[in-house]
Simulated scan of single mutants.
Amino acid sequence: MTTEPGLRERKKKRTRTALVRAAIALFTEQGYEQTTVAQIAAAADVSTRTFFDHFPTKEDVLFMHATERTELVKHMIESCDGSETPGELLVRVLKENLLTTVWNQDIVSGAVTLRLKLIKTVPAIQAFALQRLLEVEEQLTDALCAAYPDRLTRYEAAVMVGSTIGGILGALRLTVLDHDDPEKVRESLLQAIDVTSRGLRHFDTAASVPLS
């Protein structure tokens, strides 16, 4: 009985992964707008109802790993022990996630390249991606503020999160669409994090003085 929840969760994850892989393959082969939810479900060998048990919309399939990463980053920020400055924490957390989870799940599989191409060409994906970006930045800003309540204002936390995510997205846009070599993408992400970390030093200096 004690293993049943774990088994259910693993089965759920396998189904979600199968749906994502099927969707990416179909989007690549026949186009996003030409692909239906029914086709994705059939390719993953599940029912359409099962698809909607896991994803509210077709757009959500493209961003599954992004949603999981956001939750992981939030958890890591919320679990910090306060020994790092806010900037050091952001850099460490994003490096750990970008160079493991993102790289393995999205870059190697080609999901990042496909997502960026669709963001540029499909209005529905553009709108969805913008909404998701705003939600992610707000969630991470809240988490950072909660982790350093006496050291950061909400404005400072928002600027730190926004500038860091913006740098990473900029590197992805410039690199992923021009290269299919995961190592080049990895190097670009590292460089983007290093560049944005320089700007975070100002906030780390300011944050070293407790707010009055």
Score class of each variant (00 low, 15 high):
residue 108 V to G: 09
residue 136 V to R: 10
residue 1 M to N: 03
residue 89 L to M: 08
residue 194 D to M: 05
residue 38 A to P: 08
residue 212 S to T: 12
residue 117 K to E: 13
residue 54 H to M: 06
residue 64 M to L: 12
residue 159 V to I: 15
residue 190 L to Q: 05
residue 87 G to N: 10
residue 135 E to A: 12
residue 127 A to R: 15
residue 29 E to C: 06
residue 84 E to A: 10
residue 67 T to W: 14
residue 139 Q to G: 06
residue 117 K to W: 08
residue 22 A to F: 08
residue 124 A to S: 15
residue 182 P to G: 09
residue 94 L to T: 06
residue 137 E to W: 10
residue 180 D to Q: 00
residue 55 F to S: 00
residue 200 L to V: 10
residue 123 P to C: 11
residue 77 I to C: 06
residue 78 E to I: 07
residue 156 E to K: 12
residue 181 D to T: 06
residue 121 T to D: 03
residue 177 L to N: 03
residue 141 T to N: 07
residue 83 S to D: 15
residue 69 R to Y: 00
residue 120 K to P: 06
residue 190 L to V: 10
residue 131 Q to T: 10
residue 173 R to Q: 15
residue 42 A to I: 08
residue 211 L to Y: 12
residue 100 T to P: 01
residue 141 T to R: 01
residue 97 N to I: 04
residue 168 I to C: 02
residue 113 T to D: 02
residue 3 T to D: 13
residue 126 Q to H: 03
residue 122 V to D: 00
residue 66 A to W: 05
residue 91 V to L: 12
residue 6 G to W: 15
residue 55 F to V: 11
residue 81 D to R: 08
residue 126 Q to I: 07
residue 191 Q to T: 15
residue 174 L to H: 11
residue 10 R to G: 04
residue 199 G to C: 05
residue 199 G to R: 11
residue 136 V to I: 11
residue 78 E to G: 00
residue 65 H to A: 05
residue 30 Q to R: 08
residue 157 A to T: 02
residue 20 V to R: 05
residue 12 K to V: 14
residue 188 S to T: 06
residue 40 I to Y: 03
residue 26 L to W: 00
residue 7 L to W: 11
